[in-house]
Design a protein around this nucleic acid. Structure first.
Lengths: 234, 234
DNA sequence: CCAAAAGTGTTAATCCTACACCCATGT
DNA sequence: ACATGGGTGTAGGATTAACACTTTTGG
């Protein structure tokens, strides 16, 4: 039964690119390591895949350990496995991006590290190839969000249209025409207007909306039919 | 320096979903294993990641070993790592889809297995979770091809418009209106018409085209700007 | 001469884009 | 009363979708 015994084994890690949105800008959650190696340096939150868990589970555990959150939207988005990418031995790392509402995140579960939100384009130097990981994750987020409405995962249960708009502007680093954007948003039937306003961010107040969950789940899951659109430019 | 010595190591494999197009239907290249374990059963082509190579390199090596082809379009598209997915020990497998022109593939390099093209929806039972891998790869191919013109990787250097059309029909399992499709294709400026016809597949003959390589490379690389399109349905 | 596949144009509907003003409120 | 941000409508242009006939040529 030992067919594979001559094959090399490797350490397998997962690293999480945790995106959050605070209502204004897109952020990532980084940790300052309290343990060796690379103590006191900033990095992504990660961990090793254990013998009794799949990589997805490992990523969920990592996220739980840092945030206390479960059932978070996560997606595998990269593989980093250059033989020399870490100095302490060969580690192949799988990256996952996670989308969380920053308001949900209240405290760190362990004290092996400090954690802090940073604007996605303005964060301290990171260890190893973690910067590349973020770059790849940002790209994956944009690609996915172009086809599926996953960015709602970053918003609280009740949110306002100006918030969604700011979120899309942050993710795509662009400015949107609010009239066009609002129209498109509403015409998607994804939003249900509530009889309540957010008066915190403006005097007039913006109506809260919640997701049409049934439709949302359909659209999240939904599968491409046909769209040869070469029209996208760089 | 042995910070990680208490962490578990695992076998890391790569499995390749090799898509090919023969001018009519979308195919995948499968092998009938000549060696244990699972001898004489059909499976994807795969191999273990070696100590001196990255997973991408391992995937390229696997592909080379099977087809003799290098510089093939490949993309990582899945991670399969349930602790019990293989009976012979724990193996985490990274999947890559590859796109090749079946005409380029002439012979197998080793004799450890038999290899054969199968229609993508009509192939023998596969070992382990290889069927899931194909499902995921098909989805990834559709998603990617919806945004980038990667399907040209499946075509020979000279190809006809009816061929591209058939390819898109195969990938998206749909029928296309050739007038609309042709117009869109031509308006992309990706194609350069040649003064030569393929008379093999029809009496009238279809003009050959080749890719406008400069533009193609731009578009392949190009990065999403902004397209919140929730309009895609399942 | 006929079967089989290639190639081509027009119209109506839809969607996208650009653009500017009024509204509600807290200070 | 005014500053701040929320909310709305329209018109022109571009893109898409639906539609059928002619061309070429090998057999």
């Amino acid at each position: 039964m030992d067919f594979y015994k001559s094959e090399p084994k490797t350490l397998l890690a997962v690293d999480c690119i945790i995106f959050g949105f605070d209502g204004e800008s897109l952020q990532i959650l980084l940790i300052k390591r309290g343990l060796e190696p690379e103590r006191n340096k900033w990095s992504l939150m990660g961990g090793f895949v254990q013998a009794d868990e799949s990589p997805e589970e490992a990523a969920s555990h990592v996220l739980f350990k840092l945030t206390g959150l479960e059932n978070v939207y996560m997606e595998q988005c990269g593989v980093f496995g250059n033989p020399n990418r870490e100095k302490y031995g060969r580690v192949v790392s799988l990256t996952y991006f996670a989308l969380i509402d920053t308001k949900q995140y209240t405290h760190i579960i362990t004290d092996e590290y400090e954690a802090k939100w940073f604007p996605v384009n303005k964060h301290p130097t990171l260890i190893f190839d973690h910067l590349d990981m973020i770059t790849v994750a940002k790209r994956a987020l944009r690609t996915k969000a172009a086809l599926y409405p996953i960015l709602f995962e970053l918003l609280p249960e009740k949110f306002t249209i100006p918030q969604i708009s700011a979120l899309y502007e942050a993710v795509y680093d662009t400015e949107l025409d609010k009239r066009n954007f609002n129209r498109k948003l509403l015409s998607s039937d994804l939003l249900i207007k509530l009889n309540e306003k957010d008066k915190e961010h403006s005097k007039k107040g913006a109506f809260y909306y919640k997701l049409n969950m049934d439709l949302y789940k359909e659209k999240i899951m939904s599968f491409l039919r046909y769209l040869p659109s070469w029209s996208i430019e760089g």
